[in-house]
């Protein structure tokens, strides 16, 4: 494991912890898209189908369990927790899941490495992860006033993707058989979706102002 991969995993982990902590301590999910959180739960479920069949490392298994557990907990909080769910703004979070899920599923069925259930599901999870942030970005754009923790959450998620790309570049040069163009394309698309957000995030940070996205 290289430093970029480890840093990427850690920012990913922090992003989830920041979100869980925000929801748990202030009992509010204001500004958080349930649609995005449900898509992530689906991403992790379909990607980690191998969790009990292929052992890679203890680190790998533990991280998978954390991502599965945290994503389902977040969905549970927003849907079921009697205080948290009151802060969920359903009318603003209107992105339709199937606009993303169905095209990704079709793409995964046709464009994959191997036509087996596990492989198609794994590929589907890559495609879906690439676009799963969209409902959240749309919500940020709509609400405009973004609290610090939500801003940090999205920033950490974007940083995780950027670090994974550095990891792939590193692996490409150090591991001769490391070629995986589906991962590459999905990963680059995913990172590009954050470009706009990053721009405004750094602007607000530089000027020491509250983060606001243009209408």
């Amino acid at each position: 494991m290289n430093i970029f991969r480890l840093a990427g995993d850690m920012t990913h982990l922090f992003s989830v912890l920041v979100l869980l902590l925000k929801i748990h301590t202030i009992k509010s999910c204001a500004g958080i898209s349930l649609k995005t959180q449900e898509l992530y739960a689906l991403v992790f479920t379909t990607r980690y189908l191998d969790i009990f069949t292929d052992f890679i490392s203890l680190y790998n298994t533990v991280m998978k369990l954390i991502f599965l557990g945290s994503s389902f907990s977040i969905v549970w909080y927003i849907r079921r927790h009697k205080i948290v769910r009151r802060s969920y703004d359903k009318d603003q979070d209107t992105f339709r899941h199937y606009f993303l899920v169905i095209p990704c599923l079709v793409l995964a069925v046709f464009i994959n490495h191997k036509f087996t259930f596990k492989e198609v599901m794994w590929t589907f999870s890559l495609y879906l992860e690439a676009v799963a942030i969209l409902p959240q970005l749309v919500l940020l754009q709509r609400t405009r006033n973004i609290d610090n923790l939500t801003g940090q959450y999205v920033f950490l998620l974007g940083a995780y993707r950027a670090l994974y790309i550095l990891n792939w570049i590193y692996r490409h040069f150090t591991e001769p058989h490391y070629v995986h163009w589906i991962t590459w394309i999905a990963g680059v698309v995913q990172t590009l979706l954050y470009a706009d957000f990053f721009y405004y995030y750094f602007q607000s940070w530089k000027n020491n102002e509250k983060l606001q996205l243009p209408a």
């Binding site: 991969r5 995993d9 990913h12 191998d50 292929d54 890679i56 490392s57 790998n60 991280m63 998978k64 991502f67 794994w122 994974y164 990891n167 058989h177 490391y178 070629v179 995986h180 991962t183």
Partner: peptide, 10 residues
């Protein structure tokens, strides 16, 4: 290792 590319990542 015999792990396929990408499968050892999260």
């Amino acid at each position: 290792t015999t792990t396929e590319p990408g499968k050892d990542e999260l």
